[in-house]
């Protein structure tokens, strides 16, 4: 798998993401800096990691969404390249207009850092085919701005289209309808607040995140 992990100033989960991709695919991803104008050619997968890009100035993800590399990421997403945004990466994808909605300050006002249960709402996507629809997995969250908001019409539409990939199994941050992860219309862009890259081996406490990377890898094998 020819993958790329994008690093913005203030990203802090880029190494974790790269390690997870390498451990599961066997190939180290390319590391791309936010100021690069173009992505490397022939990418199979792009990951936007967690962190606090640009110190969350203005709004979480807002500055990163306008950094030079994002034009190229948006173009790749529109060509169908799988793009995964985790935590700050999810915030960047909504700010860049690749996913609907916005991520606001947690309703409880506090930073939430713990492992939470997630219900797999859609086990058919290229990111989630390794999970059973309706199953519960446990993945860590660590965020201050994870409160998913979209208007009722948008929420109804994405639910109807099977674009809610994951839902929290307990109250975490005040997200509308407990939404934890959202797919784009074409199904090749996924944003989620929980960190699958932090749950890939026994030393992490659980390995429920592995199936996500295995799913992406499997989707490339059939493509």
């Amino acid at each position: 798998m020819r993958a790329a992990v994008i690093t913005f100033p203030g990203s802090n989960c880029d190494r974790d993401m790269a390690v997870a991709i390498e451990k599961i695919s066997g190939t180290a991803p390319l590391r791309v800096w936010h100021g690069d104008a173009e992505l490397p050619d022939g990418l199979d997968f792009i990951a936007l990691p967690g962190g606090f890009s640009y110190g969350d100035y203005l709004r979480s993800g807002a500055m990163a969404a306008n950094s030079p590399i994002m034009r190229s990421v948006v173009a790749a997403a529109e060509r169908g390249v799988p793009v995964l945004g985790v935590c700050n990466g999810f915030q960047v994808l909504t700010e860049a207009g690749l996913l609907p909605g916005a991520l606001m300050r947690n309703a409880g006002q506090t930073f939430v850092c713990r492992t939470v249960p997630l219900t797999v709402e859609n086990g058919q996507s290229l990111f989630t085919s390794g999970y059973e629809t309706g199953s519960t997995i446990r993945i860590p969250v660590a965020h201050h701005d994870g409160n998913y908001f979209a208007d009722a019409e948008t929420l109804d539409r994405i639910e109807g289209e099977g674009r809610v990939a994951f839902r929290y199994g307990e109250t975490v941050n005040g997200s509308q309808r407990d939404i934890a992860g959202v797919l784009n219309e074409a199904g090749n862009v996924l944003g989620m607040m929980p960190h699958p890259e932090r749950a890939i081996e026994d030393a992490h406490g659980n390995s429920d995140g592995r199936a996500m990377f295995e799913s992406i890898l499997a989707s490339l094998a059939v493509a």
């Binding site: 709004r59 807002a62 306008n66 700010e95 916005a102 606001m104 908001f149 979209a150 208007d151």
Partner: peptide, 9 residues
């Protein structure tokens, strides 16, 4: 529209 406000919210 492009940066200073997020018109979703």
């Amino acid at each position: 529209e492009k940066l200073l406000a997020n018109t979703v919210i």
